[in-house]
Amino acid sequence: MNPFKRSPLVIAATTLVYFFLYAPIVILVLYSFNASRANVKFEGFITSFSDRVQMDGSFVEASPCGPFHWYCDLSKNNDVIEAAGNTLTIAFTATIVATVIGTMAALALQRYDFKIKPFSQLSLYIPIVIPEIVMGIGILTLFSQSFGWLNQALNLTGDSRLALGIGTVTVSHIAFMVPFVTLVVQARLQGFDKSYEEAAMDLGANEWTTFWRVTFPMILPGVLSGALLAFTLSLDDFVITFFTNGPGSTTLPIYVYGLLRRIITPQVNALSTVWIAIVFIAVLLLQWLQSREAKPSH
């Protein structure tokens, strides 16, 4: 029995919230096919595949991509390609480092007793309880002050001067990603029965072998979901990147933000649509992998 499950009130509210979540995304995608350069009004879809298409009521020169005009435009935009490259480089590097050191810390916090343990555990909560902008300007201050001092002390000039760039963004990303990796892996370790390891050692495996043959495979799903969370946090990050990037290290969110403050063409919508599509496929793939793991194999 469950007399509350099918309450029409709950169903109505649910439908409304899902509509609220998806309406903006649908509109965003729709406008990426807009036959208008100003992208203020929806002028209809681009229908023909010719070199001259009707846009804002008049004919203009265009690539023969038809409805996908703005996607073609996007693929020719070097700034976007560079920003995408930066975003992925930063996300991959930061994820690898954060996952390795974060997993190590989770093991330490869950399995060992040591002097700085309370401090280590407490520092993990900083990114959760402190607004990102506070961390962002703090890190910016750290870099600008220490770089200024180092450049002067070491007499660095020109290109060898320390400056904000991909390196500073990556290092900062790791700082706010690590706690999430550690907390996720720690949660996984909490439900881990020590008798598996004891059994391995009983059967003659030393600590090192036990870790790699027993412990690690069993916590791997936790490590992977921690890594995935870290990766998405990095891809999505705006605030920390905003304060720590420099010339040549623009990421996609920063690039889009820059465009929003100037003239917006449907190119931004095309970019957003591509992004949403990639996210959709990634989440789908992940769900599929999880459901495959959950099913018992016969």
Partner: peptide
């Protein structure tokens, strides 16, 4: 899906 779509977007 909406959560993973970029904040700025």
């Amino acid at each position: 899906i909406p959560l993973w779509t970029n904040f700025v977007i």
